[in-house]
Write a protein that binds this DNA or RNA. Sequence first.
DNA 1: CGCTTCGAGTTCCTTAAGGGAACCCCAATT
DNA 2: AATTGGGGTTCCCTTAAGGAACTCGAAGCG
Lengths: 156, 156
Amino acid sequence: MQRTDFSEMACSIARTLDVIGEPWSPLILRDIWVGISRFEQIQADLGISRKVLTERLNYLVERGIIERQPYDRRPRYEYVLTGKGTELVDVLMVMVRWGDKWLAGEAGPPVLYRHHACGQIGSVDLRCEHCGQPMHAADIDLMPGPGTAVVTAATA
Amino acid sequence: MQRTDFSEMACSIARTLDVIGEPWSPLILRDIWVGISRFEQIQADLGISRKVLTERLNYLVERGIIERQPYDRRPRYEYVLTGKGTELVDVLMVMVRWGDKWLAGEAGPPVLYRHHACGQIGSVDLRCEHCGQPMHAADIDLMPGPGTAVVTAATA
DNA sequence: CGCTTCGAGTTCCTTAAGGGAACCCCAATT
DNA sequence: AATTGGGGTTCCCTTAAGGAACTCGAAGCG
């Protein structure tokens, strides 16, 4: 194997990267999210190689992120997000916030988000699920969890 | 050029991927965030090729995500997050949340986060910056923003 | 009824990026 | 003077991305 396999690491970031860490995967996910959901559409929108697009779509289907659905009596298919895939879009939304702030430059953000609940245009904000206060890199302590990798006596 | 350049796309996701989309970059960022900040430490922790680690560190320094600081009179250096880099960790936190939920399996999450403000252990939650209500993939409409790519009369 | 069209891929070749091991440089220690 | 240790370079090999051409199967058309 050439590229290192992240899926076995005891780290949720590495495991998530195993699913959408390959080049193009997040952009394919974005396209499907916004309704660009057929092979030809995605290929044209992104300018991605057809070969790579095929590989990525199959892989995302395998991982349960998207599903392949026929939309015609002819062999025509479109891809839709599963629940698992829809939740993964959260990651994209935070990437958008960061990219809008640090990389958009003079021109400003290419896309705006309007929140259904309040009708306002704006970004997502990270909050603690318990107390509702802001929760960013500097606001937390890390502690070993139950799934921490340990060297067992058997393997030592 | 072999891998497609994402930095010029009119998409904040693509632009963000240009910064941390390459293999290993998010894991390097994570290591530096949690205090694994020297070349030898990161290399040992991740098992990454020294060649690739050098490339990634230089690139992240170039982009203003991390800084290289001497920590000894000898030529010894450690890497620290800039403000820009610290905000990028938000993306990792959301990846952790998703990975914990969908990929951790029986063993449970490898790492737990304790929020300083409330002392509770938990995850980050995505909220609208205006109204404070939940804000996920299905809760928003997309609209063209000022930085949208347009075909100008001059180039057409 | 045969020909064209179109979506959705496959095949094949070229090029560049990741993996890995060996090597190098410099400053301090012994 | 020789050793150690951090922080990289160099070099070779393998695999993945780019890209263009080709395939296949079901309609649609004349």
